[in-house]
Amino acid sequence: MAETLATQPGAPHGAEAHRAAAAAGGKRRDFLKLVTAGFAVVGTGAIAWPFIHSMNPSRDVLALSTTEVDLSPIQVGQAVTVVWRGKPVFVRRRTEQEIAAARAVSLSELRDPQTDEQRVIRPEWLVMIGVCTHLGCVPLGQKPTDPKGEYGGWFCPCHGSHYDTSGRIRRGPAPSNLAVPPYAFTSDTQIRIG
């Protein structure tokens, strides 16, 4: 303290000292402003986050995110629709012909190239999210009486997308194949989706 207070020989004084002090003060003010703004931004973010996060799926919703499906009652050629995370999931027990048709297609014909093998765990069972990749309608084709489209799979009536027996997009506005959810066989007759 003592040194700073004592006037040193040759130290600036008068108007000159004033200007130097003002410049230093200016720097300090800039610093204070930056720190204040920084705190305000961090604080606002910290307050906003709980509000934003409260709109994300809550724990009870997340707890619903697995669905078990018993496959034993499904006959060859039949399909069932189950609900997973509020969305329809198509489970189809495919016939030999359907599998053969899906595997005969060459990848170059596909808009979203994927082999049938990549889309199934066991060839007999096709499991897909039943939501059209165009704008979210549920394609027809689960019931025996439904139109199945040009390729014998599914047909979305909303804007005319055709899916084949592997659920791949073949014609119409949809950009990609019906999505395959994460699932696993927990036994020979049971799968767990999610």
Binding site: P50, H53, S54, R59, V61
Partner: peptide, 13 residues
């Protein structure tokens, strides 16, 4: 109660 237990930061709100 669900707000208190399950909703993210529901207890805080």
């Amino acid at each position: 109660e669900r707000i208190m237990r399950d909703v993210n930061y529901g207890w805080l709100l």
